[in-house]
Design a protein around this nucleic acid. Sequence first.
DNA 1: CGAGGAATTGAGAAACTTCAACCGTGGTGG
DNA 2: CCACCACGGTTGAAGTTTCTCAATTCCTCG
Lengths: 231, 231
Amino acid sequence: MTVFAKKLLSLADIDADDIELLMSASRDVRKIEAGSAIIHEGDNPDDVHVVMSGFAYRYKDTFEGRRQIFAYLLPGDFCDLHVALLKRMDHSIGTLSSCEVALMPRRAVAEMMQHPRLARALGLCSLAATLREWLLNIGQRPAEQRIAHLFCEIRARMKAVDLIEDGSFSLPIPQTALADTVGLSEVHVSRSLRALREAGLVEFQKRIVSIPNAKKLAEYAEFDPAYLHLR
Amino acid sequence: MTVFAKKLLSLADIDADDIELLMSASRDVRKIEAGSAIIHEGDNPDDVHVVMSGFAYRYKDTFEGRRQIFAYLLPGDFCDLHVALLKRMDHSIGTLSSCEVALMPRRAVAEMMQHPRLARALGLCSLAATLREWLLNIGQRPAEQRIAHLFCEIRARMKAVDLIEDGSFSLPIPQTALADTVGLSEVHVSRSLRALREAGLVEFQKRIVSIPNAKKLAEYAEFDPAYLHLR
DNA sequence: CGAGGAATTGAGAAACTTCAACCGTGGTGG
DNA sequence: CCACCACGGTTGAAGTTTCTCAATTCCTCG
């Protein structure tokens, strides 16, 4: 079973027929190298993209060379499910590691929407709940909790697609990206990571995140996974 | 024509039949006083709510009595279009002024989704684009620009439903709410507002926002309305 | 006229940023 | 095989932004 199927299964109660359908839809896979673009702001892609392996991110550049990251795309995640509604992408998507990306014709996605359980799963993929949580995270929490909360979320999502091995997972992103995610400077992120490490809560080194005690970290970060709407 | 129809018209090219349909769906209206709740976190409302007059807001309370505001709901805006997918509300909605709220049976909404143009309009209502822009706003901009950007957005949305009179509009919210929106303290919001006023960019007094020169303010705040996806 | 909530002000403290230098590592070319 | 280069991460120091606390003023409403 593909990660894509795993991901949808983690959200909704889809059955074997549904899985059959989505497997056949996501047959065409493209390989994209690390540090390049999957989709640019302004593009109008013909196909819907799904990350099958690797790590990508959704972002927008601003004035003065600043950048805000809106989401990390893990294996199984859609890049642009919303293009059915919109003409153009209003943000960009880039890779952090080398990625395999499945291309699904829009028509195949429309077909999937005809199946109630699949439609529900797809709907849950494009929920605004995670963005709201990020807003709350940046708006209300101090640096260390903010970063801790992010790690909790990524851990939970990695777990949903079976990508955790004894408390650790790969997170191939530079600290600058972390900084642009949580609205802090690179320097302050570095210092905060040290504090978290020294507190024994998280370790983030060599692109590997280790969380010795997930419950303790969740408590520290006030992380409640409900907003992910995992089953 | 109701504000609700105006709102949908500002997003998609719906026709007279469509308007007929949505008018008949939103017949039952409830009056709610200022400072009370429309929907609580955890509720599972039977009907979909639409603000017809007044001002409401979407928010979540956190640890330690903090609060993050995710959206302002202007006349014409949906409160809970997503409840079809989710069992429970994962955040709350409260009123800032006294409001009239239309109740639409879920079934009526499902019926609207059968009409392509209406479906498109409804889809555009629940777009994540605005949340992304808020995230960028809080994550990357300093206090004064952050507040200025928010005013630009609200102005644009008020304009879309014809609620602007010579550069001014009513914004019946206390500064504490503003603070909980942009992730700043009440005190700092007060000081930033003064700075904006002294710069001749915005005036926010007695719950009225006056923008003498919208273009100048937009430039200052780096505001580009594209993310609102207004026609 | 008085009371209560909201806004403003001042002052001191904390959080976070910037700048600049330095370290470590992995990859490349001589 | 070694030297060097580039990049990401770390550190220190100083500066700026934003926060907290507490007092004061301003408005609105009764």
